[in-house]
Amino acid sequence: MQVLYFAWLRERIGLPREQVLTTAPTVMALIEELKAREDRYALAFSDLKSLRVALDQKLSSFDAPLAGVREVAFFPPMTGG
């Protein structure tokens, strides 16, 4: 699946998007996989209260299942307007 990062999360991880091969059943399981990769991921995902997730471009939650999802995006709380 495509995993996208925005704002300071993109800067901390160092890339805007990547293709990730995973069998993680939930968003939380995907986050644990990413955190186990490298320190920069562990650091970026250290405080989940400061992060939001969208599945196929719809806001979702960390316990949501990933079955059938093609695009996962992680980002800080939005600051539009």
Partner: peptide
């Protein structure tokens, strides 16, 4: 402000900070 996926970054003379 809170549900459209925009993120603001302020570029100052002493560096840049993401708006919280």
């Amino acid at each position: 402000k809170s549900r459209a996926p925009f993120w603001k970054k302020e570029i100052g003379h002493d560096g840049a900070t993401w708006v919280a």
